[in-house]
Design a protein around this nucleic acid. Structure first.
Lengths: 341, 341
DNA sequence: TATATATGTACAATCGATTGCACAGATTTT
DNA sequence: AAAATCTGTGCAATCGATTGTACATATATA
């Protein structure tokens, strides 16, 4: 029972007294194989419990039918959903997906690229780590002719197809919505990191203020890592100001939650005294009390589209292609945390 | 720029006027290679931008250094975290991980097993789909000598190592905690599916009631799919009873959230009038108002342990091993939704 | 009937890395 | 100084599937 020698096409060939090439062709539906032979081969394959060895085929063909995905972390809803979206498409055309996490660690990201190249993946789909400022590891991959597509956390420093949401627009919509609700002193939680998504959200925020002739005040813009704890601290910082804000727009839902906790602890009414909005539409935002206004990023669809973009590029087989930049429109999800009226 | 022919050990050999075998040995730190040669090889490898071809090595060695993971869905926090836990361990010893989702679909699960076997993964870690009642696809994998480890959604019908949490104990603890808080009419949301985790939770619930001489009332046990909407409906059903329950223990956090929404809409006080508890410690449970008492499943650690169990088995290299069954103790997380005192 | 075309298989090289064995030259032992 | 041992490297087979080319037989065409 230990060594059920795995059957190969040679074993099948031997049984039928034909050669491995014929078996291979029969299994691959090559038209030059007679129906009779094909049937015999299939039958014998089943009998021997034959399982094709993709590794051998991959070596010969130079195609592994595996694509590598790099995400900062796989257990955040957004990334998990995008991955799911990618996998849905990949599976349909018989591709498998290797998931790698960079943990927002630059060195790990570099290593991961090398590992994927060594694994001879047919291509790479990635969302860049927060701390990455040098992109030569991605360039190396591209130079080897490996198709590369970036999503969400992207960069313009690479000639690469990318798919992201319009963070600027999302933030603009949130801010404008807050203004329409009558807020005039709107604070913003952002991240000082160089990741473009946060800069874009900041830009959307400031532009909306400007459009409505509201001042952009440094004291109301708080930088942090945007986690729950950061949200708490940022909120406390704001409450220590001479004049309280009448709204907080956090660039992350987690940051908004931290703010919500502090506000509730201090019995500050949401949204009457301070309106609150987040970004990402994490599942929990509909459960909170009050439910949180936020921005939906269509993560599964984003995964689908990323995969489609990727496979399109893969089909072109290394030929030059113009990098496409697809920008998805996010949707403002208005909930009670901002509904003053 | 298109065809930067990827360098192989033969290319390195040619440059240095030695053979590929020497290069291979040099790269693998074989002690029989002189330091001088090794240095030259490494230097040349770097110059040529050599990237080992794992596929070729895998074919030769019969080891792909890839393990397959099958989960019902990758975008649920619990599974995403377990996967992360597995990946942490796997990466440390230079293994990669292929994630596959069964979507709780039996056919897809079977196909996935075949795909992984063809990909020649070195082993499989899986959590069984809800609708799977025949396990021969897993048996087939085992017969081929592929190490298999199951987590969370497991079965005793296979001779296989498994790792799960003690759902019975978790449910028992929750129920006993509710009783200690003075609740006497405790309802339970469960699932009619054959998945053992829900049956175990139900058993923990009833046993705790019995231990404290409380009646087990059918009218208080509501079956559903345990999603948010189901929780709402179940709660409404309970509120329609002649006598209201004084506590609800849902076998899922989502179900509990549904109940919470209904209770709040009806201005029924939590926990004073109805205490509320869930199961899984989804991230959002700490954000709700009031924060939800629930049971933590240590998902990342579960992933770590699953991976460790798996690699232990892998090391034994097909030798017989006694399947181990590891049961993790879950932790009761007490929050305000059940604290009457 | 002789030649041309179709049909079905076989042969052998290939993908890139690994490894048992052989062997030459250098060093040590007796 | 002859024999034994050590060092460092080369040779060639191997992992399993694929595929261009060759070739034999069968059928169609002239």
């Amino acid at each position: 029972m230990a060594e059920k020698a795995k059957a190969t096409i040679h074993d099948i060939a031997e049984v039928l007294n034909i050669t491995a090439s014929t078996v291979s062709r029969a299994l691959n539906n090559n038209p030059r194989i007679s129906d009779n032979t094909r049937k015999l081969v299939l039958k014998t394959a089943k009998q021997l419990n034959y399982q094709p060895n993709n590794i051998a085929a991959a070596l010969r063909n130079g195609k592994s039918h595996i694509i590598g995905i790099i995400v900062p972390t796989a257990d955040r809803t957004f990334f998990a959903s995008v991955v799911r979206g990618i996998e849905e498409i990949a599976n349909k055309i018989n591709y498998k997906v290797i998931i790698c996490q960079s943990y927002d660690n630059y060195d790990k990201e570099v290593q991961t690229i090398d590992a994927l190249l060594s694994a001879r993946v047919d291509g790479i789909i990635a969302s860049i780590g927060k701390n990455t400022e040098d992109f030569s590891h991605f360039k190396r991959a591209q130079e080897k002719g490996i198709p590369l597509v970036l999503f969400d956390r992207t960069t313009d420093e690479l000639e690469v197809s990318q798919i992201m949401i319009d963070d600027y627009l999302g933030a603009f919509k949130v801010t404008e919505h807050l203004i329409q609700q009558g807020c005039r002193r709107i604070a913003h939680f952002t991240s000082p990191k160089k990741v473009s998504i946060f800069r874009e959200r900041l830009r959307g925020y400031t532009d909306a203020l400007k459009k409505h002739n509201l001042p952009v005040l440094d004291e109301l813009i708080v930088g942090s890592n945007l986690q729950l704890e950061d949200g708490r601290k940022s909120m406390e910082k704001l409450l220590a100001l001479p004049e309280m804000p009448d709204a907080v727009f956090s660039a992350s839902d987690y940051g908004a939650m931290g703010a919500m906790q502090v506000l509730k602890e201090r019995k500050i009414k949401i949204p009457q005294e301070v309106a609150l909005a987040g970004f990402s539409n994490e599942p929990f935002t509909s459960f909170t009390d009050p439910p949180l206004t936020t921005v939906d990023q269509f993560s599964i669809q984003m995964g689908n589209m990323t995969a489609e973009l990727f496979f399109e590029q893969l089909k072109q087989n290394g030929k030059k292609h113009l990098p496409q930049k697809t920008v998805l429109k996010p949707e403002l999800i208005i909930r009670q945390s901002t509904l003053k009226k």
